[in-house]
Design a protein around this nucleic acid. Structure first.
Length: 419
RNA sequence: CGGAGAGUAGCGCAGUUGGCAGCGCGCACGGUUUGGGACCGUGAGGUCCCGGGUUCAAAUCCCGGCUCUCCGACCA
């Protein structure tokens, strides 16, 4: 991609009154644009990051048997009335059509997936079933805040599982948990599995996946010796008390952001929508349901909160919009010809490259933009390098630079599949 | 929804006692520059958030509303 043609370029000044790091950097670097509080457009650069995050999640969900589908965001009110959520869920956006019919915008999709599964589930032999989607959710938050961490419209992967019995659900929960931890690991994040309240429709414990960051909205207590972690909203002990699990460590309190969750929905929805099967003994069974969410846009925001410095974003390679950022510095014909050659060679090898080919832009501005945008590797072709047909290479999170030949460069960045 | 702050050019902001609408960046054109956000010149660009009111005169004062940010409450 040629930066001169990219829609959504950097801004020199911070958006007015925006203090959140993720909003500030993502807006300034040209990843997102705010339409209104809690509602963001994803520009080409931002969409590339979001798609990478989604694909990491997609791969892991598929690996545990998840089947991707896509549900409507606009829902008939009747589905929400049937579960009682129409009256009780205050974040539900409600809409009236011209003809007076009532609709809801999906804040979650249990009300849609359950009757859908009912239409196709014929036998207990089809269980367990795991379906998921990646879609925008709508929640009428009283106060949207923290940039893309809490929006009124936001991206989410939501998976729903259906099981014959509690034991089967719990087995799958363990697999889902491992898959989630792999997702965060690939996003370079360390997530803690945290006990939390079950929310409005479940008296049971739920699990949240928390990443430590001051930008978060939750307080957790975690053990420094084992993996025990609990949300303070349900914790019966305080900071400094002995860990109830390993009895060796001491609990520490910290701020965190919830980047995923798992709920045991029990038979709430299958009963509400009369979704049942007969087991092999001819007994009528309402399946146990679980739901599993990962906020895709929030995950993107948390990554920025974790990986940045005073100059800009420092993307982990796995989610970076491009692998390399090629800068051309200087105006000599030799520099231009060589950088064009390098760009074309990288593109031909299938290496994701953003080429800062702006003719009149100063070196300082290109460096500053490269730091702000935060692509993992910076390549520079300039008068200093071109005589020896070399390219300067620097990692975004390091200060040292080195010189390499084009062939070495292509070798270094070639994707494993092409090697 | 309670508390606090803000809304003026595309973006960031200044605007004193009520008296011609300004600055920086960006943008367009010309020129000089070229390894860390260079410089000179010229130019375009305005519903001063919206609606009332006071006044000879309102970006400025008063009333009402809207939007944004932060804190809180809220938050499957």
């Amino acid at each position: 991609m040629r930066y001169s043609k990219l829609f959504g370029q950097t801004k020199k000044s911070s958006p007015a009154g925006e203090v959140t790091v993720n909003a500030n950097l993502l807006i300034r670097a040209g990843y997102v644009n705010k339409l209104m509080a809690g509602c963001y457009s994803y520009l080409p650069l931002g969409l590339r990051v979001l798609r990478k995050i989604e694909n990491i999640i997609r791969k892991e969900m598929n690996a545990i048997g998840g089947q991707e589908l896509f549900l409507p965001a606009l829902h008939p009110a009747e589905n929400w009335q049937k579960t009682g959520a129409w009256e009780t869920v205050d974040v539900l956006f409600k809409i009236k059509s011209r003809t007076g019919r009532s609709y809801a915008l999906g804040q979650s999709h249990e009300e849609i997936i359950t009757p859908l599964v009912k239409e196709y589930l014929d036998s207990y032999q089809e269980l367990p079933l795991f379906v998921y989607q990646i879609q925008e959710k709508f929640r009428d938050e009283l106060r949207a805040k923290s940039g893309i961490l809490r929006g009124r419209e936001f991206g989410m992967k939501d998976m729903y599982s259906f099981h014959l019995n509690q034991g089967d659900f719990e087995n799958f929960y363990e697999k889902a948990k491992e898959a989630y931890l792999k997702v965060y690991q690939q996003c370079a994040l360390k997530a803690k599995v945290t006990e939390a309240s079950g929310g409005a429709f479940s008296q049971k414990i739920s699990y949240e996946f928390m990443v430590l960051t001051d930008a978060g909205e939750d307080d957790i207590l975690y053990c420094q010796k084992c993996n025990y972690c609990i949300n303070v909203e349900i914790a019966e002990f305080s900071q400094g008390t002995k860990c109830p699990k390993c009895r060796r460590g001491v609990l520490k309190k910290a701020r965190a952001s919830e980047v995923g969750n798992v709920f045991d929905l029990g038979r709430k929805y299958t009963r509400d929508f009369d979704l049942y099967v007969y087991n092999k003994n001819g007994e009528k069974i309402y399946p146990i349901m679980g739901c599993y969410g990962i906020g895709t846009t929030r995950l993107m925001g948390v990554i920025v909160e974790k990986f940045h410095d005073e100059r800009g974003i420092i993307w982990p390679e796995s989610v970076a919009p491009f692998k390399v950022h090629l800068l051309t510095i200087g105006r000599s014909k030799a520099v231009w010809q060589f950088s064009e050659k390098v760009y074309c060679a990288l593109v031909e090898k299938g290496i994701e490259v953003l080429f800062d080919d702006r003719r009149k832009t100063s070196a300082g501005e290109k460096f500053a933009d490269a730091d702000l945008i935060g692509i993992p590797y910076r390549l520079v072709v300039s008068d200093k390098t071109v005589n020896n047909r070399q390219i300067e290479i620097k990692k975004r999170n390091q200060t040292k630079t080195s010189l390499v030949l084009l062939a070495d460069c292509l070798e270094k960045f070639a994707s494993p599949a092409l090697k």
